[in-house]
Design a protein around this nucleic acid. Sequence first.
DNA 1: TATTGTTATACTCTATAACTATA
DNA 2: TATAGTTATAGAGTATAACAATA
Lengths: 161, 161
Amino acid sequence: MSQRRTKPSSSASDPGSGEAAIDASFLESLLGYNARRAALVIIERFLDRMSVYGLRPVDFSTLSLVAHNPGITSRQLCAALGILPPNLVRIVADLDKRGLVQRKPHPTDGRAIGLHLSVEGRKMMREAEATVRALEDSASSRLTAEERLTLMSLLQKIYKP
Amino acid sequence: MSQRRTKPSSSASDPGSGEAAIDASFLESLLGYNARRAALVIIERFLDRMSVYGLRPVDFSTLSLVAHNPGITSRQLCAALGILPPNLVRIVADLDKRGLVQRKPHPTDGRAIGLHLSVEGRKMMREAEATVRALEDSASSRLTAEERLTLMSLLQKIYKP
DNA sequence: TATTGTTATACTCTATAACTATA
DNA sequence: TATAGTTATAGAGTATAACAATA
């Protein structure tokens, strides 16, 4: 899934169109299918609008957690985001190379490294978080504010412990 | 994301736990984040319970669409599932090798190939669809029937044209 | 002995270009 | 010329094993 673009019209001249359209009613009765499709639509929009910052979803999530949890460790980031430690190494290293995060020795645990946003990182994230809010509003423009809150509450009932 | 297993407890002895836990409230206010997390939890459960059939989510979705749309073409499957044509080739080829689907020449378009479920395919999908229903019910056990319908309706307002 | 961060690596998923056969 | 199916391949994402340093 997650194609770049979907053809605006697949017309009625498709082969096999004795039936007007494809019946996907079974799949559309599944939460997993619906949640994945919705997530991919929003992620696609994210990719479009966040490319100016050079931030993929995982970069943004990482920076956002560091912003709101200064001194957070890689291990904690992995647990919070569901990323495996070996896969976080390059993500953090790249953000460090770009001067967005800084690694400081952990105050009490010599094995761990605390992560902090740099001044640049803070500045970028103020803009980036506002952009994400705007993009989410636009992606959910067919929902009322109340429906949006209901939707998030119901989703969290599924994935939160 | 989508780790195999999450540690049951990350205890309070994590380094940097002056604050009790990580603040993910910003991310948790985003639809994209919530939809993705929920989808991954359900997909993880899918992987567990559907492994007996040897069906990944994409195999199941493909077979389900073929089941309910006999004669559907690869192109139509790609459009319905958001898969790119080169990536569907092996999926269909493998299902064919396993004797679950059959390819028949399209009645009116010589370029296209109509897909149909074999007798075995139909038998497996009757079981598999029931298993998916059960797995979805268990994954959404903290939702009422009404909440479940509301959730799907709201998700479709995001991704459906 | 267990955990943090890391390297190396394999596997899966997704994407692009280009070809053929038919429309 | 455009479309259906296909091949080959590149790139991103995700997984496991194993290591050094510290607890």
